[in-house]
Every structure is written in C-alpha cells, then in structure tokens.
C-alpha cells in the first residue's frame, strides 16, 4: 500500500512540474542558459537606454553586466527585457527575468508583500530642487516665499509641504497633472523652483533649452533608495546579487579600478589580496570562481567608475555624487567587507 502511494506521488510530481520561480537554483538555470535575463526600464536617461549602436547602456544596465562578468567572465552574456513600471514585478515573479535592475524604490511593502528581495541601495535618490542660476540661491533653506512647480497627487507634493513647514518657510504650489506640463511651466517661468526626484531633475535639466542656466540644490528632502531586486526563495542568487554590488563598492574603497586591477593583484595589502581572490577561496563559497571580483572590476569597473561613466562627471548628466559617495568620503555608501 505505502509503495503504491509513493508511486502515485512520484507520478503526480512528474505530471505537475514545479513553477519556474521555485525550480532549480537561479544560478544553475542562468549557467545552463548561458546568459542572465535582466529587466531594465524602457528608457531612463543615465540608468538604462539603448545607445546609437543599439546596445543597452546606463547605471542599471552596468549592474547586470557586472553580474554577468562575475558569473561568465563576459559582461555581454546578459539579455535585457525592457519593462514598464506596471509590469516589472510581474515579470520578475513569473521568471521572465532573473533580476530586475530598473531604478526601483526599496519599500517595506514591496519587500514583503510582493515576494521580492532588494539587493541593496545602488543609488540613494530623493526629492530635490532645481532653480535658475540667475536666482543666485545655494541652498533650499533660502527658498522661502518661492513658487514651486510639482505634480499633483504625488508624494512629492506631501514631502514639499512637510519640508517647508518644518523649516518655517512660506511657499506657493503650482501643481500640474503630468511631468511634461510641470517642466513646461517651470521653463516658461510660471514658478521659481521645480521639484521632483533628484535623478529626474538632472535628466530634465538636460532637456531644457539651456541646461547650464539651471542648478540643482544640494538638499535632498526624501528617501528614495533605488536598487536591484530578486525573487524570494533563492538565497544563493540573492547572495550573488548582493555581493556583486558590495564588491564594486569595496573595490572603489580599496582603490581597485579597471585600470589598475592587474597590478593590484601583486599588492601586499591583505584586504586587496582577499578582494581579488589571491588569498582564500571566498568566491567559491558564493558558487563562483575566486577571481570573480577581478572579472567584475576589469570588465565593468568599480562603483565609482560606473557612477562616473553613466551619471557623474564623465556623463552628460553630471550628477553630483552627494549621498552616493563612499562612507570614507562623506557619503553613505557602505559595503560589508570581503573576508
């Protein structure tokens, strides 16, 4: 009798194959496919967009390339699925993509209810202010009495009210239904200040007729931590995703860049030797090779290089690193040590 049951259960198990989400480990699946399927945006300046040659490039794209470099030693073994804000989580849950790297804000709700794990905060975003240079303002605290353009019904509007009230400043809201209208109003001088997420302010500035006439103030008044996301239920893949990001930060902290990574292997600094896999077998513990960080840094670069190339001084956007500086340089980007 028990044997018959076993046969029946085995047969049932065969006829109902497991859902893709809970099937064999994502790393094994990715390795057997030969590429990572990475969900990106359908086009956000600096984060993920196709360039003139039709290749995806940007900050979020480079994270997926780093992951591919760590696994395959080839940053091009990654395929991109452009996703909208609405279908991004469904695509991840259904297994259409292995990882979602699409400037997604980390919130408690998303982390728990949607069955997702946030890898880390690759970019600390938040609400900022843009003003005309001619106003000669250097801080948001000097904005008292200003008229502010914003979108209606967003958290942006609430944050704005809180910030001005807390600092006992007067202001006047000029709200619009869409982003484009808001920008147009700011450009035509209906208001003195434009407020939205800082990363968006920089890309908006690029689209204005004379970008150099506008400045983005240093104050960030809300928390929008952006980062890559993986599915619940695969800790090994979560670890790899997490440590790929940490490794890029640690490499920057230790001064290891794509230009000097080969020389750095000869370094006597034990931290660098561990980071580059010259000592110990930390990479194998992750299910990768020991030189996985060498692969990431040489093929894609450290965090600072990736930031600079896509968003920072080396790019068209020229975003100030602000909070995204390393903790050693006054920012809050801090990664656990590789050891």
């Amino acid at each position: 009798m028990t044997r018959m049951w076993k046969v029946a259960i085995a047969a049932a198990a065969l006829t109902f194959p497991a859902l893709p989400a809970s099937a064999a480990g994502t790393l094994d699946q990715v390795k057997s496919k030969g590429f990572i399927q990475c969900g990106v945006s359908q086009g956000i300046i600096g984060y993920s967009a196709p360039n003139d040659k039709g290749e995806w490039s940007g900050f979020d794209v480079d994270y997926c390339r780093a992951l591919a470099a760590a696994i395959f030693n080839d940053p091009n073994k990654v395929k991109f699925t452009p996703l909208s804000t609405k279908d991004r989580f469904t695509a991840l849950q259904s297994g259409e993509v292995d990882i979602l790297s699409r400037n997604t804000t980390w919130t408690l709700d998303r982390d728990t209810k949607l069955g997702l794990n946030f890898v880390g905060t690759t970019y600390y975003d938040g609400q900022g202010f843009m003003v005309k240079k001619s106003m000669k303002i250097n801080s948001a605290l000097e904005l008292s009495g200003a008229s502010v353009c914003t979108q209606t019904g967003t958290t942006t509007e609430l944050n704005l009210a809180d910030y001005f009230r807390n600092n006992k400043m007067k202001y006047e809201v000029v709200a619009f239904a869409t982003v484009d209208e808001t920008i147009k109003a700011y450009e035509s001088g209906r208001c003195d200040v434009l407020t939205t997420d800082a990363s968006q302010l920089y890309s908006t500035r690029l689209k204005l007729a004379s970008p150099d006439d506008h400045v983005i103030l240093p104050e960030i008044i809300s928390k929008e931590p952006l980062g890559p996301v993986v599915r619940h239920g695969d800790d090994q893949w979560f670890d790899i995703a997490k440590w790929t990001f940490f490794a890029m930060l640690d490499a920057e902290e230790l001064g290891v860049s794509s230009k000097n990574v080969e020389e750095m292997k000869k370094s006597t600094n034990p931290e660098i030797r561990r980071l580059l896999g010259v000592e110990g077998s930390l990479g194998e513990g992750l299910g990768l090779t020991n030189d996985w960080i060498v692969r990431i840094v040489s093929k894609v670069g450290n965090y600072g290089e990736v930031f600079d190339r896509n968003l920072g001084a080396g790019s068209k956007l020229k975003i100030d690193r602000g909070y995204n500086r390393l903790w050693t340089k006054g920012g809050i980007q801090y990664a656990p040590p590789v050891r």
């Binding site: 945006s41 359908q42 086009g43 956000i44 300046i45 600096g46 993920s48 967009a49 196709p50 360039n51 003139d52 452009p82 890309s203 690029l206 689209k207 204005l208 007729a209 790019s315 068209k316 956007l317």
Partner: peptide, 13 residues
C-alpha cells in the same frame, strides 16, 4: 523611438 528619447547624447528640448 521612445527608448531613443532617453539616450543622454540626444537629450534636447
């Protein structure tokens, strides 16, 4: 076309 809008090397008014 929409994707091409977000290429920073072509962002203009």
């Amino acid at each position: 076309i929409r994707a091409a809008f977000s290429d920073p090397s072509w962002a203009t008014p």
